[in-house]
Amino acid sequence: MSNLRFWACGLLLVLTGWLLGRLVSNEYAFFAGYSVLQYILLATAWNILGGYAGYVNFGTAAFFALGAYVSVALNKMYALPLPVLIVAGGVASGLVGLLMGSLTLKLRGVFFSIATLALAIVSQAVITNWEYVGGASGAYVLRPRMGPLGGSYIEYLFYTMLVMAVAAVALARTIERSKVGYGLSAIRDDELAAEASGVPTLKLKLLATVASGTLMGMAGAPLPFYVAYLDPPSAFNLAYAVNTIAMPLVGGTGTWIGPVLGAILLTVVQETAMVTISSAANLLIVGLLMVGFITLAPNGIVGMVRSLREGRK
């Protein structure tokens, strides 16, 4: 896809989303749409570090929940507008990414992964003990009736998420085709050889960790308004971590389109399973899909499509 076409598509998507929103009167559509977009954003964010550089982050929930709780705290203090909260949530999670990264990225990737897993646990303990944002009993957030652009607040949240998701995908695509993208691929394939080829591996890994963490924090910032009641077990739900890993792996980790496909597919599957089977079963489906894809089709749907095409030639 050429640059012009990509940007035209992105813009068109935002406009279509907005137009559809104007026509739709059913609130459920916005709730469902928000959820899909949130996962597109999270999966894309995860993929910048996990897919491009090959560093597995199990702590999505930590970065995401941090964004959400920064939002809760700032909203309680000053009642700031949503875009400011999003920036603040992004900055906070980006800083955590920087700290984590600078402490653990010198070691093999496995150790970084274990540290992110532990990060999710420690940050949940911190939030559980932070009474100002509700501690263990959770926080109620008053969702305004109307959005600043007219329409309901949920509609506003939906548009905000739409813009963020499209922007994140655009960012991922830009990285993928840049010098940084080649550097990250080299790191994923062979870090020693990357370093010998002049790639500043530590710096690039940090960059990817911060970018990824920032986007996750931004994704979390509107969450309190979306759910209206936030407590640690729901903000740190393991489902976030599993989904954000499963989506790129199912879609394909090498390119920007993979996480998008994976996010759409898995959210639809889960929404369907939730209605038709049970909520426990839908998590099982995600787990099985993830393990199934990594064992049988390591390059995800994108890889399958590509090999089909090449096979036909």
Partner: peptide
Amino acid sequence: FQLPRPFGSLTVAENLRVPMLY
């Protein structure tokens, strides 16, 4: 390297592009 350590997911040309860029 003693044992070749190519960037496996990149094409041969892209393998050279990495050091050229950096």
